[in-house]
Design a protein around this nucleic acid. Sequence first.
DNA 1: GTAGTGTTACTCGGATAAATATTGTCCGAGTGACATCGG
DNA 2: CCGATGTCACTCGGACAATATTTATCCGAGTAACACTAC
Lengths: 170, 170
Amino acid sequence: MKLSEGVEAAIHAALTLAGLEREATMPASALAGQFGQSPSYLLKHLNALTVAGILQSLPGPAGGYRLARLPEAISLLDIVLAVEGPRPAFRCAEIRQRGPAALPVSVFAKPCVINAAMLRAEKAYRAALAHETLDGLMDAHTVQTDPRAVAAGCAFVLQNQRAQKKSKTV
Amino acid sequence: MKLSEGVEAAIHAALTLAGLEREATMPASALAGQFGQSPSYLLKHLNALTVAGILQSLPGPAGGYRLARLPEAISLLDIVLAVEGPRPAFRCAEIRQRGPAALPVSVFAKPCVINAAMLRAEKAYRAALAHETLDGLMDAHTVQTDPRAVAAGCAFVLQNQRAQKKSKTV
DNA sequence: GTAGTGTTACTCGGATAAATATTGTCCGAGTGACATCGG
DNA sequence: CCGATGTCACTCGGACAATATTTATCCGAGTAACACTAC
C-alpha cells in the first residue's frame, strides 16, 4: 500500500501546467528543476500522462508539455490511474481455490466476498479522487497556501512558459 | 498503488479463524495448506496481526492462532493497516520546497493542498474499509458463496481447529 | 490410583536469501526555430 | 527587401542499470501435552 513517488511529481507538474496560459507549453526540464528532480525520470511520468490523454507534448524548440483538457476536466483520479496503472490496488489472486481440496471450478463462479469488499472500498477511494479536480486544487492553492509561495509559483510560470507562435490545433 | 499479496492471505486467514469456535485455535500450517501458501511466509503476516492485537498466538502442541476480539469488532481496515503499516499510501515528500528557489521554511508552514486532497481520498478509503467487518463478511459469505464452498470451509475448520482443554484467559 | 518428572513433538518467532517492482540514468530519434543564401 | 533552404539546437521517447521493497525460506527458542516412574 504505497503510491509511487512519481505520483506526487506528476500531480505537481500537472498543477503547474494548469497555471500557464492557454496554448503555452513548458519543457520538462523546467518542471524537473522546479521540483529538484531528475528530468529524465520526470519525463517517464509525463509521458504516461501524455499516453493517457491528460497532457500534450510538443517536440522541437519552444516545445514542451501542456494540458490536453481544461483543468476542471482533469481529476486526481485521472493522474493516479495514468501513473499507477488502471488495475485496482487489491488484486484477488483467488487463493481460496488454491488449496489441495481441488473443488470444481464451477464452485467459484460467484465472486469472492473479500474481493468484493475490497473493491467497494477502492471504489470509494476512486470516487473521492475523481471529485478532486485540478481546477479545485488551483483555487485551494491560491486561498490556502502562503502568498509568497503562490507568487513564486506564478513568477516561475511566467519565466518558463513558452508561448506557441503559431496556434496549432493538433 | 499495489497492496501486498499478503493482505489477501491475511484476510482469508482472519475470516477462517472467525469461523471456528470460541477459545479454539488453528495452526498456521493448516491455514497455509488451505490456501496453498508457504507456511513460513504466512506466519510473517499472522505475526503482524498478532502484534497489532487482532490475533492471539498460543505456542506448544494444540497451539495456533485465534481471534483476539469478536468478529464484529475486527474490520478490514485493522487488517490492512496491520499488514501494510499505518502510514498513508500517499506520502508527501514536500517536493514543492525542493526547488533551487530556496524560500524560507516558514512559507511552507501551511499544508500542501495536493497532500490534503490525497489524504481526503484516503480517508474515504479507510472509512469504507472500517465499515467492512469480519462478521459482515461471514454473513455475506454464507449467503453469496456457493454452498459447496461454504461446506468445504466448514469441514476444514472442524477438521483442523484445536480446542483448548484448559480455558486460559491470557 | 495418583502425583511428580522428564522427554518429546509441536508451535510460533526472528534472521536470512531470492525475486520483483520501483527508481534513476543514459543515449537516440524527431521536429521546429534560426541563420544563411539566393532571387 | 523577400523567400527558400540547410543547419542546428532543443525537445521528447524508449531502452538500460541501481536501488528499494516485497516475497519466500530456513533454522532456532519456547511451551504445553504426553508417557513414564515413583509413591
